[in-house]
């Protein structure tokens, strides 16, 4: 269990990135949702020991993530949001390097571990290829492989599926699900479907604060019978947006599909709809007061 309490971080320019984050993250996949600039990456960097918070604590299995960086790094696997590779090294060379940094010193063990990891991310046949020649998907897979080095107990993946095509995303989801059985995996993303597909627990962060923390199924339960959908003309859509709690609008065949949250049918033309996690997420981040 990863316990985060009162994390605050304000950057030198005065930007308040985190404003008292409290979270308890159990073993398994944990989704951290939030719009761009919400503070997700700051929180991830703090947990990955790359940034010091101004205040607050974070601990897991008795290890102080803020104070004992060395111990934290030993149990950590981190896939940064925007990461690069040494283009002149091969995948094998770079992964070997990172493995040694992780402390996997036994050469035979290391080799077996790297073989398995490259196999899992489907890069075995490209292991001798220089990383500079890797495609975006291959780079991302490599990133995942390096995050899994040493079988970490805390895995932080920051926007991992950005740039991946559907096939790669599926592969990635499968992989994460498999390894998340007894470790803490924090998946930071703004792609709601990733969380809905993978995570047992989730939290939504906005402007440096956690505004919701629950399981995806709980989130859906909260919206059951309260989501309404209508397809209307553009003029009408603009009018309805100003009058109702519209959580999303989407163009479809020249008209606008609106989804609203209300205990009763909000207006003529609306019909009940099955709630999705997007409804939940948008209702939280688009409306100051959140769910009522």
């Amino acid at each position: 269990m990863l316990k985060i309490f009162g994390l605050r971080k304000t950057y030198a320019g005065g930007v308040r990135a985190l404003n008292g984050i409290d979270l308890e993250i159990p073993a398994g996949m944990f989704g951290l949702l939030g719009p761009n600039g919400a503070g997700k990456t700051t929180l991830m960097k703090i947990l990955a020991t790359l940034l010091d918070p101004d205040e607050g604590t974070a601990a897991m299995d008795g290890i102080d993530l803020i104070g004992d960086k060395a111990a934290t790094r030993r149990m950590l696997g981190y896939l940064p949001q925007d990461f690069g590779l040494y283009p002149t090294l091969t995948a094998e060379q770079m992964l070997d390097y990172l493995a040694r940094l992780k402390g996997i010193n036994n050469a035979r063990e290391r080799r077996a571990h790297l073989d398995a990891l490259l196999e899992r991310v489907n890069l075995s046949s490209e292991r001798k290829q220089k990383l500079g020649a890797y495609s975006g998907g291959m780079r991302q897979r490599f990133g995942i492989a390096q995050a899994l080095l040493g079988s970490p107990r805390l895995i932080i993946v920051d926007e991992p599926t950005a740039g991946l095509d559907l096939e790669e995303r599926i592969r990635f989801h499968n992989l994460l699900s498999e390894i998340a059985a007894d470790v803490v995996v924090i998946l930071s993303t703004h792609i709601v479907s990733d969380v809905s597909n993978l995570c047992d627990q989730m939290a939504v962060i906005r402007r440096g604060e956690i505004i919701a923390s629950c399981s995806p199924s709980d989130a859906l339960d909260r919206l059951t019978g309260r989501v309404w959908e209508a397809v209307v003309a553009r003029d009408r859509a603009a009018q309805l947006k100003s009058q109702l709690a519209i959580v999303s609008s989407q163009m479809t065949a020249g008209r606008v599909k609106l989804r609203a949250i209300a205990d009763t049918c909000p207006d003529e033309g609306f019909a009940p709809a099955a709630p999705t996690l997007e409804d939940y997420y948008f209702s939280l981040v688009n409306h100051q007061g959140g769910l009522k």
Binding site: Y97, L101, G103, N105, H113, A116, L117, R120, G150, S151
Partner: peptide, 30 residues
């Protein structure tokens, strides 16, 4: 799918540090 084994990890002590240093130096030199 190949099972991921948990390798032995050692980051404390001089040999471990030395191994890290050598690995980093070799990569930097490459």
């Amino acid at each position: 799918l190949v099972a991921l084994t948990r390798p032995t990890i050692s980051t404390e002590g001089l040999p471990a540090r030395w191994s890290q240093f050598i690995a980093a130096t070799v990569v930097e030199f490459r």
